[in-house]
């Protein structure tokens, strides 16, 4: 079975934020939450780079290791998902994630802290596929429809790639050969050390 991975080629990202908008629109994500965002480093200076960032669905996901209520699980395709029925909004995963992926809605009645929200690789959640509950809590399940994440589909420069890790990395390798350098796949080594699944 394919191991799903994201790859952001920082040499190609033009900070258009189409990926951010596509994600928000597809999943009807409320105000204040961005499952995906574009980070720009060295803004306005030499070496400026932009990177589209969301949950990378890490091989050895640090969020899973620190969750005190075991709300995370990894699908057979390597997608890291979580149950909002179990999440207690403690924020420990936020402190563990090197990509700043976990988000928390701006609510805060005592005892009903906001449930964590993050990128699902457009793979829904533990509810039944295509159910209203799944869409309401986690967004659309494009993977179950045979489609890939919309953020990458919408990327006009194909800076953001999503899909079978072997295919994605092969495309990137071709680019490196073609352009003669290849330091742009930010976060790949951190999320998938040693190319592990």
């Amino acid at each position: 079975m394919a191991r799903m991975k994201f790859l952001c080629d920082a040499e190609r990202c033009i900070e258009c934020n189409a990926c951010v908008t596509a994600c928000k629109n597809e999943h009807e994500i409320p105000w204040g939450i961005n499952r995906r965002r574009v980070v720009t480093i060295n803004d306005g200076n030499e070496g400026e780079r932009s990177i589209s960032v969301a949950c990378m669905h890490c091989s050895d996901a640090p969020c899973m290791a620190v969750c005190p209520v075991d709300c995370f699980y990894q699908t057979e395709e390597g997608v890291v998902l979580h149950s909002k029925d179990l999440c207690i909004g403690c924020g420990y995963c936020f402190y563990a994630c090197p990509f700043g992926a976990p988000q928390y809605p701006q609510v805060g009645n005592f005892g009903s802290r906001g449930k964590m929200d993050k990128c699902t690789f457009c793979a829904g959640g533990p509810e039944d596929n295509f159910s209203d509950a799944e869409f309401q809590k986690y967004g659309r399940n494009r993977l179950a429809e045979g489609k890939l994440p919309l953020c990458a589909e919408m990327c006009s420069t194909k800076a953001l790639l999503a899909g079978d890790g072997d295919v994605v990395s092969a495309i990137y390798r071709e680019r490196i050969v073609s352009r003669g350098f290849g330091s742009g796949a930010w976060g790949w080594g951190k999320a998938y050390p040693g190319g592990a699944s």
Binding site: V69, L86, G89, C90, G111, S112, R113, P126
Partner: peptide
């Protein structure tokens, strides 16, 4: 004070 949790 109990955080919201459900067992599906």
């Amino acid at each position: 004070k109990m955080p919201v949790q459900r067992l599906k």
